[in-house]
Design a protein around this nucleic acid. Structure first.
Lengths: 140, 140, 140, 140
DNA sequence: GTGGTCTAGACCACA
DNA sequence: GTGGTCTAGACCACC
């Protein structure tokens, strides 16, 4: 199960962004390792029933960001760098991100309940961070 | 009682950050209005029994962020802008912030549960976004 | 020679601000690329013969502004984003900034000549934006 | 010569903004003092050959900003506050604004010449800060 | 009196 | 070793 993409078409989040995030997540989760080949633009487009340009846009963004490298004529691959975040780095990054949201929520005068609701709503209509029980690894 | 600051000395959150967040919260809560003077650096330092530099650091950060303006020789005041956000602006900002955390959580390979736990932990040891009706501390 | 900082001690511009601007300039000039490590706080302090706190203040400001990222225990690095602005983005940003100053000058009742003089003065005693082809200091 | 407005219709700067800035400038220059009456919306509209709504929009913005007060049925007047900036405050504000542009120019990698050109261009097609020799007072 | 900067030296957590 | 925070005390410019 090298890569399992899906889209929620009704979402306000652009499809190409959904693809981008899912590939990023797969890489940082280790499902996609450095050097791994990604399915071709056409294959993904057909699979998701979206336009090939949409997929190309997502791939392009990831290439520009350095997550993927494109080798014309051969395909696109997971880039070398991003040397697997250590557990402590993950924690630090998560914490920093959390600090930012909470600070923004505070500065906007939102309550904890509002924050939670906003996260719920966003995850739901994005399809991101939805627990799937595909594996028992991430229960934390 | 225009501004009631307090610190939790045992916290791992730096004192100057605690001050920053409390002032931000007071502004967004409307307790501190545009143009209002803040207590002097030295006064706060004496009140909280911390060094004046620590308070100055907090004030400075808020000045650089545009929440306060400093008029050397006179004092520091709440900045003009953002008399108050409209409900829609609040929602927009919250959503944008949420989008950022979720994206970061995804890119770091964290699960929804981890995100929630991280937010819980951060709120708890920061004292931010904790709904407490048990005492009359929060007037909002 | 990855980064060559210097201070003009007689200046009214705070040392930490001089450091901030020089690092910003180096980044935008491309001398410092994303991911590059900066010299340690203590190293810079020794080099410039200033207190470590002063350097830390400069680094901290750049971190809060998102130009640098700090990894405690490891060092501080140039942040990922903004690989480089496109020409049109540069122009747009410059224009927006110009619009702001002009508006402020107008609202303060200053003349064009005063604005120019103020810019001259600021550049001169900051060392910023001074074109100097007389020596090989600026490689850009 | 209590107020002399003019517009540059070909400009990309909205006409109402041009009016706003000119009135602000007149106030801070002292040409318009607290309590002074402004010409009626209709009069200005006729004078500038623009729609009355455009003038009303400008007045409205200044009222919201607190520069003007509208007394329905009587007219609009220069507000009380804004207690004439002192010379030092003017200087401080100008300097702060200049610092911001220069910093932005630096961070964008622009040269001094580019900055000057951008200011020139903006002033020219805005009509702001153009020396008119109306009086010899402001020569810097 | 106000804020702003700088120094000197301490301690912590992290790697 | 790294950055981050805090303290104590000094000096400045501004009002």
């Amino acid at each position: 199960m090298p890569l399992r993409l899906k889209t929620t078409p009704g979402s306000s989040v652009p499809i190409y962004r959904q693809i981008v995030e899912q590939i990023r997540a797969a890489i940082s989760r280790g499902e996609l390792a450095s050097g791994d080949a990604l399915p071709s633009v056409r294959a993904v487009a057909e699979d998701l029933v979206v336009n090939a340009n949409t997929v190309a846009k997502a791939y392009g963004e990831l290439v520009r960001a350095g997550d993927l490298v494109s080798e014309p004529g051969r395909g696109v691959f997971v880039a070398e760098r991003k040397p697997q975040l250590t557990a402590s780095e993950r924690k630090r990054k998560l914490r920093a991100a959390v600090e930012r949201v909470v600070a923004e929520a505070v500065s906007v005068g939102a309550s904890r309940a509002e924050l939670d609701a906003a996260i719920d709503a966003h995850c739901e209509h994005t399809g991101l961070l939805v627990e799937e029980d595909e594996d028992g690894l991430r229960t934390a």
